[in-house]
Computed example of a mutant assay.
Amino acid sequence: MHSRSWRRQLANPSKAKGTAWETAWTAYLREIHNPSAHRNVQMGAKDIGDVSGFYLHAAELKAEKTIRLPEYIAQANREAIHADQPFGVAVVKRVRAHVSAAYHVRDAATDVRLVNRLRDAEGLLQRHAPADVWKAHYEKHGKGR
């Protein structure tokens, strides 16, 4: 590591913590959801979220000592608009826990839109797919898994 980048990391441990969290969650996302998920380059006022590749979402990742949910949700929703995604989500690191225990946080309006979309998609699948396809889908994703 170059001495300048090493000094920068020491000068801003919060940024290093955030970067480590984004890297860990992206690796987890690649493993279980989308192999092409990646961290985004920050774009200032037109930021599109910290990580791309979480289906239909702009993901804003947070690893902070003091949790400020209203700010995180507002930021995720703004970034979803910039990223042309229907949903924003704040992914909040849980202290001393595995990445899979992170909190995914949305406001109620976003969550209802997401659940309505899932309900409608489920109905379409049930009506238009062969019965064995729907049953396999239900068994793979249903019953609290």
Rank of each mutant, 00 (worst) to 15 (best):
H2Q: 14
S3C: 15
R4D: 11
R4A: 11
W6H: 12
R7E: 10
R8M: 13
L10F: 07
L10W: 08
A11D: 10
S14R: 12
A20I: 05
W21S: 04
W21K: 04
E22C: 06
E22K: 01
T23A: 10
E31G: 14
H33A: 14
H33L: 12
N34L: 03
P35V: 06
S36G: 10
S36L: 09
H38N: 07
V41W: 05
V41I: 11
Q42M: 15
M43P: 05
G44E: 00
K46S: 12
I48H: 01
A58G: 07
A59M: 04
E60V: 00
L61M: 05
E64P: 14
T66N: 09
T66S: 09
R68K: 14
R68Y: 14
R68T: 10
P70S: 05
I73N: 01
N77H: 03
N77L: 05
R78T: 03
R78I: 04
E79S: 03
A80E: 02
A83F: 01
D84P: 14
Q85I: 05
P86W: 00
P86Q: 00
V91L: 06
K93M: 11
V95L: 14
V99S: 01
V99T: 02
V99L: 02
S100T: 05
S100F: 06
A102R: 03
Y103R: 13
Y103Q: 15
Y103P: 13
R106E: 11
A109G: 15
T110V: 08
D111H: 11
R113H: 14
R113D: 15
L114M: 07
V115W: 09
V115M: 07
R117L: 13
R117A: 14
R117W: 15
L118M: 10
A121N: 12
G123R: 12
G123D: 14
L124N: 02
A131I: 11
A131M: 14
A131R: 14
D132I: 13
V133C: 04
V133Y: 04
V133N: 03
W134H: 00
W134P: 00
W134K: 00
K135H: 10
H137K: 08
H141Y: 08
G142H: 01
